[in-house]
Structure formats: structure tokens, C-alpha cells
Design a binder for these strands. Structure first.
Lengths: 252, 252
DNA sequence: GGGACGGTTCGGCGGGCGCCGAAACGTCGC
DNA sequence: GCGACGTTTCGGCGCCCGCCGAACCGTCCC
């Protein structure tokens, strides 16, 4: 596959919307994505097949459902990198911001294009507070954690972001382990900064960021609310944040 | 600009070919690019305008020439990242590998599509030996230098590639200076590994890689040959390589 | 000044592709 | 078994866009 073919996969507004939505790291059904992007199910089906063929998405069939998710962290990184390049990417709420007047019946103006399970405003404020960004933490929670690991010297930003010896010890104490090849050239970097859409500041990505998020979910420090990417910090989570990172209750 | 619009800029084989060619870090004229891609000058002109509007390319007009180059290192990184994603990108010689039979008269089969100043085979072997990759060194020279800085401990790959204290001292001795903001989040990383097309191994990119390349050109350790990206190591350069990095004369 | 040359603008053409609706298929639940 | 539902396949439509050649403009050089 050539560079042009790869880019062409992302060059369609509908497919781009799919990928952006899937950046939350979860598996969506074909129908959900179709409603989200405001296209017919048949259209969505074709787009998904192309994205899967191209290796950007992975599918998992369950009964009459077709679940689909990003093929891996590299894909998420790629899409983030591309998105970071768009000077004024979309509206503040994260909607991709479709070009007006492409095809009749596709303007997202009247009514929310795809009501999900939480009411729109509730969902947005919940996501601004805490959410997943592919496989790590984002929103105010994300940048708060990012600031904390930096302030406590677990991560340094000298010569590019990296985990310190202190950070490695901290992980060991925590009982969490990085994948063996993390950080090796070609493999996933240990620490990556990822621009946060809502906060307009960096939060923590990479293998370390993913490990933190997974640990937090495993130990029930955070839990999913609704069907989207929004998270809630549990009481256990608040305690862990305070004890492990010196983070206060968390800004509401 | 949305993600889709950005991707659309790279989604055309001709525009992709332009960007790939410009990855050598030099400024090309519109006509050179047109011949290189095998399209009419008028077609190239339109493509260039779109790429410039999109912020991927920068132009510099000189007399009746329109020189054009990548807008910055971020663009080069972006294109490299995307290229790294294509499993079997192009033919071994680095030609983008156009999809066959798109439009009559565009098949690159018969004859070299755009003879540049060196004969094709000469050019290819020269480029395999030493060339620029955007603004840093590539080819056998590039990976050799990359290996050397790693072996001498100037760069480490623990927790992601980074310059060591030894490396900083080495730079100071050399009288070379990194840009002040290099490595800060959002700015250009100090050390980046970049997959070498010909060697299929990593060479040195990032601000450090660019600094080395610029220094080498400034001090006449390497010089351009031909009008392409190929480089030749000068006698001064061989001496510098030996004394500064312990690299032997350089594989022919 | 005049011719050569690089680049641009404009019309016009053709193909690709994204869209939909209708019909069909498979699964699930009653 | 039957209807509901999620998904897919197929035809058909319309637009977008990449291509070219012709004409034109500005620069360079003799």
C-alpha cells in the first residue's frame, strides 16, 4: 500500500469521523458509527470494510453485530499525529466539523446527529472531566495525572519525555509492569505526550500512560459511565490518587 | 482544517510523490516535480498550490522559478510516520510505486520517468551510500553514524531515544548547539529514530540528527553531489568521522 | 526587441467514489 | 416459525477531482 492509498483511507469525512470516534479505544458497532456520522448503514458498512482492508481497523463479529475498533496503538498515534496537524480542528466539543454543503441531507445542523445514552450536555461535561483517549487517560483527570507524575519526578521531559529511575521504582511498588519491549526502537514509546482536546494541554500517553489507565480500570479506581468514553473516579480512586500521586480530590 | 482535509492532501498519488521527493529536504522547482511525477506542468502547478494552501509546503519564488520545499520538520515527520505505516511501501529503489493503469500516458514503465543529472544507476548507488533524509543523514552513512553515537554512549535507547550527558558534552566540544526549545513538549524531539529505506534499519533524526547533518555540511565534511539528495564524504569528513566517532573510512 | 522557457489559468473531459434505497441474509428472541 | 433487527450487497446517481492542451504571463538571455 502506498502513502497515497493510506491517506485516502482517512481522506473521507465519514471515515475520518469513524476513526476519531474510535479514538476512545473502545469497540463500536457498525450501526453506532453510522448513526454517529449521519450516514446510512449501507454506507457505513462499505467504509468499514475499506478501513479494515487497509489495516486501520480490526473487527470482531458477535452474532448479528459487527464490532470494530482501531487496529492498535500505532493507529491511534497516527490519527492523533494527523489531528495535531490541523490548526483549528473542529468545534470545541470535538465534533469533526464537517464541511458544509457536501451533500443534501448530511448537514449536522438540525438536532444532534446521533443521540447516545447520556444527554448531550451531560456527556460533554463528563468527558471533559475524565475520559479515555484510546487507551490512556484524558480530560482534566488526564492532565492532572500528567502534571503529577512530572512534578513528582516519575517522568522527565529533559531530552524528550521519558520515565525516570524513580518512575520505574514507583511502578514496581505499584505492582504494575511495562510490556518488555516498550521503548525499544520500533516498539511503542514508554512515555508520549498527547495533546488534550478539551484542556488544550498535554496528557500522558505511550505504554506508561496505557499501563496507568489499565491499572486504574482493573483496580476500579475509575469506571466507565454511559456507553461512551467518559469515566468517573471512584472513592478508591480518589484515595489512590492522593496516596500515590499527591493529587487532591480532583477538580469537579 | 479537518483531519479528512489534511489526509486528502496526501491521498493523491501525484501529490504524495511530490511530498516523498521533497523528503530529501531540498527545494525543488515546479517543473522538476512535474517531470519527476510524470504529469503536465499545469497539473503540477495546481497540486502545488493546494499543498501550499494546506500548509504542507512552503514556496519561494525566484525569477521565473517557483521553488518549493516541505514547510518544516514536522511535515517531514508526518510523512515519514505515514510512510512507515505502509507495509510494503514501494519498490526497493525508493520509487513510490504507482498503482498501475490509472490514466493512459502515466505509466512509468517505459524509460525512466524523469532523468535527473546523474545516470539512474549511479544516482541510486550514490544515494544508497550517503544522502539526506529531510534534514538529517541517511543511507549507509546515516545508519553508521547512528550506530556510532549509540555505541559511544552519546545517545541511549533506554526509555525511548534520548541524548545522554556524554552526548551533550560531546556537542559542546564540537562547538555545536541545539536549538533552545528542542525536546520540550510540543517542540521537535532531540533524538528520533527514522527508518532508513535502503538499509531497512534506523538512522538518526530529530534535532540532534539535523544538527549533525548541518554541521557536517557547514564544515565540508560531506558535500552534495548531483542535484539530488546524494552526498559524498570528503577527506576532512573521513577524518572527522574517525576522530569524533571512531568510524572507519566508511563502507563503499 | 525578440525568442525561449518556466509557470499559471481556464475549459473540458472522464473516471472514481461516496451516497442512498431496495432487497437479501443471518441472528436473535418470542 | 416468525418477526424484528443489524448488516451486507447491488444498482444507480451525481459530484468531485485529477488530467490534459491551449492560451497567456513574466522572466531571462541573446
Amino acid at each position: 500500500m502506498s502513502l497515497a492509498r493510506l491517506a485516502a483511507l482517512l481522506a473521507d469525512p465519514t471515515r475520518a469521523a469513524f476513526c476519531t470516534a474510535l479514538l476512545d479505544g473502545r469497540a463500536w458497532t457498525a450501526g453506532e458509527l453510522a448513526r454517529h456520522a449521519g450516514v446510512a448503514p449501507s454506507t457505513a458498512s462499505e467504509h468499514l470494510s475499506r478501513l479494515i482492508d487497509g489495516g486501520l481497523l480490526a473487527e470482531e463479529r458477535q452474532g448479528r453485530h459487527r464490532y470494530v475498533r482501531l487496529a492498535g496503538p500505532e493507529v491511534a498515534t497516527l490519527i492523533e499525529d494527523l489531528s495535531a496537524f490541523t490548526p483549528l480542528s473542529g468545534t470545541p466539543d470535538g465534533t469533526p466539523g464537517r464541511t458544509p454543503g457536501r451533500t443534501p441531507g448530511r448537514t449536522p445542523a438540525a438536532g444532534s446527529p446521533a443521540p447516545r445514552s447520556l444527554r448531550e450536555s451531560t456527556r460533554l461535561s463528563a468527558e471533559a472531566r475524565a475520559r479515555t483517549c484510546y487507551d490512556h487517560l484524558a480530560g482534566r483527570l488526564g492532565v492532572t495525572v500528567g502534571d503529577a507524575v512530572l512534578a513528582r519526578g516519575l517522568v522527565t521531559e529533559e531530552d524528550g519525555p521519558a520515565l525516570t529511575a524513580l518512575g520505574r521504582a514507583w511502578l514496581t511498588d505499584l505492582g504494575a509492569e511495562l510490556p518488555p519491549r516498550a521503548g525499544r526502537p520500533g516498539a511503542r514509546p514508554v512515555v508520549r505526550t498527547c495533546l488534550d482536546w478539551t484542556e488544550r494541554r498535554n496528557h500522558l500517553g505511550g505504554a506508561f500512560g496505557a499501563l496507568l489507565c489499565r491499572t486504574a480500570l482493573d483496580r476500579n479506581w475509575v469506571e466507565r459511565i454511559g456507553s461512551g468514553r467518559a469515566l468517573r473516579v471512584t472513592p478508591d480512586g480518589e484515595r489512590a490518587l492522593r496516596e500515590l500521586l499527591g493529587v487532591e480530590p480532583l477538580p469537579a
